[in-house]
Design a protein around this nucleic acid. Structure first.
Lengths: 341, 341
DNA sequence: TTGTAGGCGTTATCAG
DNA sequence: CTGATAACGCCTACAA
């Protein structure tokens, strides 16, 4: 039987209240008594029952997730993971609110952020691009004492408390490694399709990709980035053009969160099968494309882990306690046809 | 504020005890009152506070993990994950006991299992080969009402309640896919090194590997399995012999849980760099081998996930409640130089 | 068949 | 500075 506060109160010859005071480092206890209690604590090997503590404390965490209203399927999977987490969050005394803003509309985002304050929110997780407006809105929240974590794409300039997501440079490196290894040794060129060079995660991935290609696969030519802005028409046109113009093309790296248009084009293009395609994020589209052999590899992050990590971190920050960094590291996952779920 | 049992008691015009009875589906309540209470429950949207329930119930889970005393580093990582889980298990009211038996000694294993019974254990997780002795010992435990899960290597003939680990056929397929894709198009042959054909997981992996190689990479010759029995000397000799005898060798697939001896040989062999090496399980050895380029890819399972899943499943079985299969699926992870943690 | 009262391990209020 | 005492949300004898 684990020792309880009662046991250590008895052992130290003090009352429950006093034990609680030293346990929670509250003032108003003689140094002498503190010593006695602490002695009893580690003599009996006491560890506090967190669930009982939370019960008594009546602690609730009101957390807000701010996500773009974007066409990319990835955001949808993130939303799904969030509502999944919401179902079991009652057990953690956590209330999750999901706020949306139209993608690419910083003003709407700022308006959304304005509705949040220390009085109604214990922590905010944000998946948004890093613009000046956003930076200011976050600064206000932070100075109001609300913990902030950046989701998927980092917001370093905002002074966010933490970033939850993969190391995107390493993610790009991983994509590059797979591209090079799958490619064979024949030379050729690789097309790089980004969603937007405004998005920090896209830029970092491209950087990592270029590093590895230059270091380890110099015989492959990496073409300049093409921005699709997640527009299906643009993507279709651009990809077709390059496929026609570059008969030496042997691979395509899709950097952004969405690959629907790319997959669409490839599905009907006669050269698709000879190309090595590497994309990011596992969604219904990339999943199906892996299965049918259109895409060769996906570099992904587990949205469930992302959401749960954000929740843990926000609760910890809100309590002013530390986190275990190793536990919050989001893995860079590689998915191919054969390890698909 | 979430509604509590008190609220629904009030709403239904009954006492706490009655609410509790219908909540836990206990007998001794009129159909009529049951209806009234249930009506109140889903009218107020009540969900029980599991932590408070567990606190009141004083439920404890005494779980045992039975692991081999084996030289493979993989078992060490599993042990580590287990003791890691042990540190935070107090919060889950779970007591974890780790029992060891000398690898390859079924009698010792059976003796170990004999010390367990329904009186001292609420669930057992076993990582062991499938032998008749083991089957009987497990049958006894099961008929005693103790839930059993197989760990890493399945024990289907024992009637275990659940298997926690990767689908090893798919794991072998994944290894085959990587071998084929990394290999280039030049033909050649691949050596397959198993730890023992007695181990079910090894057999299943080999099976999956062969499937993919035959389906998708028929130009590569897959050599017969070589059994190392996790003996470093045997491994060293066998690998060297094949390297000398088969100049057309282009790859090695290490099927077992241990790759130390293989890595050792390769580190000094002049042909190592031209070979594609695929191994299983991320350990300090394979990690370092990935980093230095000796191994190209590792197919792995997260031992942390394995342990946590086993704990969840055993608790659920012990409570006689269902599990969420999707949540308990262990991912087949692919690790290369660039996504190494 | 139903209700009362006490307890699970912790925190928090209010006297002393 | 310290100690009773009453919560927190739920479970469970025991009594009615």
């Amino acid at each position: 039987m684990r020792p309880t506060v009662n046991d250590i109160a008895k052992a130290a010859g003090v009352s429950l209240a006093t034990v609680d005071r030293v346990l929670n480092a509250r003032s108003g206890v003689t140094e002498k008594t503190v010593q006695r209690v602490n002695a009893a604590i580690d003599q009996l090997g006491y560890v506090r029952d967190v669930t009982a503590a939370n019960l008594a404390r009546q602690r609730r965490y009101r957390l807000a997730f701010v996500l773009p209203e974007a066409p990319e399927l990835f955001v949808a999977t993130l939303r799904e993971a969030l509502s999944e987490a919401g179902r079991s969050s009652a057990a953690d005394r956590t209330e999750i609110r999901t706020l949306s803003f139209p993608a690419g509309n910083p003003h709407a985002l700022v308006r959304t952020l304005r509705t949040l304050n220390a009085g109604n929110t214990d922590g905010v997780a944000i998946f948004a691009p890093e613009t000046p407006h956003v930076r200011d809105a976050i600064a206000r929240l932070k100075s109001d004492g609300v913990p902030i974590v950046a989701l998927v794409s980092d917001l370093p300039s905002t002074g966010r408390d933490h970033f939850v997501g993969i190391d995107n440079i390493a993610g790009g490196r991983t994509a590059g490694f797979l591209m090079g290894k799958f490619h064979g040794k024949s030379g050729g060129s690789v097309m790089v399709l980004v969603s937007s060079m405004q998005a920090r995660d896209n830029v970092e991935r491209r950087l990592g990709f270029d590093q590895v290609m230059a270091e380890s696969f110099p015989e492959i030519e990496v073409l300049p980035s093409l921005e699709s802005h997640d527009d299906e028409e643009i993507t279709a046109r651009v990809v077709s053009e390059v496929l026609d113009a570059r008969p030496d093309l042997t691979g395509i790296y899709s950097v952004g969160h969405g690959s629907r248009a790319l997959v669409e084009v490839l599905r009907t293009h006669h050269r698709a099968r000879q190309l090595t395609i590497v994309a990011h994020e596992l969604t219904s589209v990339t999943r199906e494309a892996l299965r049918s052999g259109v895409i060769d590899a996906v570099v992904s992050q587990d949205v469930g882990h992302v959401v749960r990590s954000a929740l843990r971190v926000l609760r910890a920050k809100s309590d002013g306690v530390g986190i275990v960094p190793a536990q919050e590291r989001i893995r860079i996952e590689i998915v191919v046809r054969e390890n698909l779920s």
